[in-house]
């Protein structure tokens, strides 16, 4: 249990998927302009990330490895993720319309979210065991959500501040992300 906790702390803070590993940037700058949409995106990302890592791990270890088709990893993973997102969308629409309304518009964005695909590949590269892979996916998604929410909080402030014209939008979001990355360096050593 202690090992899982350390792994989670490391994946959330010192090796934050977004600020240190650069995965999942498109939605990061895209939807982080206000807190509410960030919450929606975080929820959708968490949900899909855990599911996707679970399925891709199973596909890799029980389908690709036995048939020595490891080189088809890229193709297989992206197909699994794309169809998974479709499936989740349909199932949610039928069974949990409220949740679907909350997460719905973010789901299509998720297919091209490199965090999902990246976490799946990292799980394979790091030789994570099944349960490790699920925990790792959960932790990276929490780290992603944390960074997303903090940035959204800061950007809501910029909207009423006096950020210079040339800095508005992407430049200031990226620089804030950089400074947040500096802050996250402070967590190095914790959880390793």
């Amino acid at each position: 249990m202690g090992d899982y906790l350390l792994m989670m702390i490391s994946a959330i803070f010192a090796n934050n998927i977004l600020l240190i590993r650069f995965l999942g940037l498109c939605p990061y700058v895209g939807v982080s302009s206000n807190v509410n949409s960030s919450v929606g995106m975080s929820g959708a990302a968490l949900f899909v990330n855990v599911l996707a890592s679970t399925f891709t791990w199973l596909v890799y270890n029980y389908l690709l490895v036995p048939f020595q088709l490891e080189y088809l990893r890229t193709v297989a993973f992206i197909l699994v993720i794309a169809s998974l997102v479709q499936l989740v969308e349909i199932v949610l629409q039928k069974t949990a319309p409220a949740l679907y309304r909350a997460l719905g518009i973010y789901l299509p964005l998720i297919t091209t979210n490199c965090m999902i695909f990246g976490t799946a590949v990292l799980n394979i590269n790091q030789d994570n065991a099944f349960f490790d892979a699920v925990i790792y996916a959960f932790a990276t998604a929490i780290g992603f959500s944390l960074a997303l929410l903090i940035l959204a909080g800061l950007r809501e402030r910029f909207a009423i501040g006096k950020v210079p014209n040339m800095m508005n939008g992407f430049p200031i979001a990226l620089i804030s992300a950089g400074l947040m990355g500096l802050c996250f360096q402070g967590f190095i050593g914790l959880g390793q």
Partner: peptide, 8 residues
């Protein structure tokens, strides 16, 4: 300065 000076 990138944020618009002291205060921002």
């Amino acid at each position: 300065e990138v944020f618009g000076g002291y205060g921002s």
